[in-house]
Design a protein around this nucleic acid. Structure first.
Lengths: 355, 355
DNA sequence: GTGAAAGCGCTAACAC
DNA sequence: GTGTTAGCGCTTTCAC
């Protein structure tokens, strides 16, 4: 019998399974069974339970349920930033995967801070999530090292390392940029400006590697400038301004991340150059606006949905007890050539004047 | 003493507060007190506890803790879509508010489905969140009706209704569009195309109202076309194509939501019109790319951070026991005029030919 | 089947 | 202070 211990506070409005049982004239266990489909609902007891549930507006307490079951159908997800369209789409797609499988996603952001990231991971582990996706922030090592120790199945997404201790899914960054770079060279470009973010982020570092590989393979005159642009459109604009003031105009601009692409488009127009005519322009990562410019801007497209579904099935494999060493999977990018993937105006070096 | 009941499964690796207590030679209660800062940590017992925590890699079980405390520091958030930049920024800002206050946000999306929305709300209530933010999807009534019955503090964001049963925070949609519309008229525009989404969404309906108010106030010749554009850039493009084929070119285009702005920009350029010279262009909702076009595109900017912070403090007020009738707060939009807020090329009706 | 009862991990009351 | 203990709401055995 339940003792009415006044010290154990209980919010007046909260109705528990015992209240339902009492009203239906059955035991709490039976209520639980009816509600969890372990018992038929279309007999006197079943109906009485459902009636009582409705009358009392009973709402099962998921916290108590998880505690007792010692398992949750919740998957944690830590991304650097909700405002990055890549991660926004990733969340959306993983939510869809979760829905199909009877799980739910709890998404949080690290706001590009390694500290916040590790706090969030710790918090999610505290909630005993069934699994964890992590898109590590720049320079975070805590997350992966820490997760490798845990017995919680985890998958690293996007910013993967080859030979990690944890499973991971990313794109073939280097292959994609190498291919585009070679294509630019074949088109005749000999002065190419490559805009990157910061090589502390593994995927941007890989993209740079691909570019360098293509550049090295070319024997003959080729001038490639590498420009660190920082995180925002504004920082990228400033970097471009400075570069353009001090250097000959390139015949092609290759942006290795999305904010730089917008900055490059902006600066070229400001300087009276038209992308696709006076200068070729390619970006890594697609955005809605790119395809709607005139001419539309070429972009390397990351198949976010494919990434999400691969990551999901890797995680499900581990949750299902899959053992074996950690694997890193690579998904291929698609190159949308569009209107700005054009040859140089005068067959070779910079537009306007020769070096 | 703990009974070793083999039927109560317990994952081998899970270390509980009792294990820590045993190792430290103290009681579970003391461990709890040390960990929750209710007891000094720098005496023999405190140190022993911390040592045991470290040695066993103990991780407090947040589920058990919340069950016992019967309160959680978790706030639910249901938005229609993570990929909409407005909501992405909203999540980010609410996360910041939560962090400052010792709460955490659990964000989920309804994927613009009223069914999913009500499922998500139910689920969050099942987890006994301390409060709930809801940005209702088009045509959902369940959410708000349902929430009004609950004793969980809730705040509606963005798509608010005047005179709701629940607190809400939105922007002054009608005032903002009315002001812009009047400004367009004052500049001399007499043929204006207004692109809207669908008036089932309360905020877009309000924006339309503002436009109509301004149009009615004007006495004299004025032609306003209203074009329903649907949700995506593609649907908006198709609507624009059809409209442009059958009607004189407007001297101004006013887009009441973000995807239409991109479509309008795209179609005008495709038809050889330059926004800011041949046609004025204004969008509701800012996006990064708008300010970086040449000329930059005028936009009504929703102060997402202000909205988030108002919503946060309303919710905190209710959680803190604040009573009283539901209130709907309105935040003012900012109008960024930029380069496409220009007078018509030839002082009046459509560009090109007269009606 | 069905009800009684134990106990998930934790915290808060209460004796000592 | 500190340890003991009850119990949050639920599920799951176990005896009937």
């Amino acid at each position: 019998m339940r003792r009415e211990n006044p010290s154990q506070r209980r919010s007046a409005s909260a109705v528990s399974i015992r209240d339902v049982a009492q009203r239906a004239g059955v035991s709490p266990g039976s209520v639980s069974n009816v509600l969890n489909g372990k018992r038929r609902r279309d007999d006197p007891i079943g109906r009485a339970v459902l009636e009582a549930v409705k009358a009392l507006d009973y709402r099962p307490n998921a916290i108590a349920s998880s505690l007792r079951r010692a398992e949750s159908r919740v998957i944690g997800l830590v991304i650097p930033d909700f405002q990055n369209p890549f991660f926004a789409e990733l969340v959306a797609e993983l939510e869809r995967c979760a829905e199909e499988t009877g799980y739910r996603i709890v998404a949080t952001s690290s706001r590009e801070s390694a500290d916040v990231e590790s706090r969030e991971i710790r918090e999610l582990l505290g909630w005993r999530v069934a699994g964890l996706f992590l898109a590590p922030t720049a320079g975070s090592t805590y997350g992966r090292e820490h997760l490798a120790d845990q017995d919680v199945p985890s998958v690293i997404v996007d910013r993967v390392f080859e030979k990690d201790l944890i499973d991971g899914v990313g794109v073939d960054n280097a292959e994609a940029t190498e291919a585009v770079m070679r294509e630019l060279i074949e088109l005749g470009h000999r002065r190419i400006l490559v805009a990157y973010f910061d090589d502390a982020v593994s995927n941007v570092a890989e993209r740079l590697d691909g570019v360098r590989r293509a550049a090295m393979r070319r024997d003959g005159p080729l001038h490639v400038d590498y420009l660190a642009c920082g995180p925002t459109v504004e920082s990228a604009l400033a970097a471009f301004e400075k570069h353009f003031d001090a250097n000959p105009v390139p015949t092609a601009i290759f942006c290795l991340f999305n904010t730089a692409t917008l900055a490059a488009y902006s600066i070229t127009r400001k300087r009276g150059l038209e992308a696709g005519r006076d200068v070729a322009l390619v970006g890594f990562d697609d955005s809605a606006w790119l395809a709607h410019m005139t001419p539309p801007i070429a972009a390397i497209v990351q198949p976010v949905q494919v990434i999400a579904r691969r990551a999901w099935s890797m995680l499900m494999g581990r949750i299902g007890g899959g053992l074996g060493p950690a694997r890193t999977e690579r998904v291929s990018c698609r190159f949308e050539r569009r209107g700005t993937m054009t040859p140089p105006r005068n067959g070779g070096m910079e537009a306007g004047r020769r070096k």
